[in-house]
Amino acid sequence: MQLKFNTRDPVYMQVIRYFKTQIATGVLEPGEEIPSRREIANMFKINPNTAQRAYKEMEEQGLIRTERNFPSKITRDESVIQHVREELVVTAVNDFVDAIKPVNVPLDELLDLVKQKYAGADDQKGGALDD
């Protein structure tokens, strides 16, 4: 697993964002065990203290649970997972809006375009699966 971190955002936040994406998209399932802090540090080539901080933060946000001497697990709390998913969508939409705003496209036209692209992306995905 290779993840390219940027150098300006705190690394621990980038780690959390990575996990949130994995949770929201279902790659990591509720209750699934995740790698230890050291393994994560090793995998992402980041400072172990930073990995530790990311895990602590995720525990505080209820994203993962750690019982003494056991590997950390993804939360089974549906509301938390739902929240993460929403957050992810909102962030993505915010980014999108921030990017498109300066172009000044009428909203209707934009929505049509989004619908079209969205369906197209699904089609392409389906097509790829058929191969």
């Binding site: 940027n6 300006r8 955002d9 705190p10 690394v11």
Partner: peptide, 14 residues
């Protein structure tokens, strides 16, 4: 360095 990124949004190279 994490505080720098968090508080100033800068990288070490910056």
């Amino acid at each position: 360095v994490e505080e720098l990124r968090e508080n100033e949004g800068k990288s070490i190279v910056d």
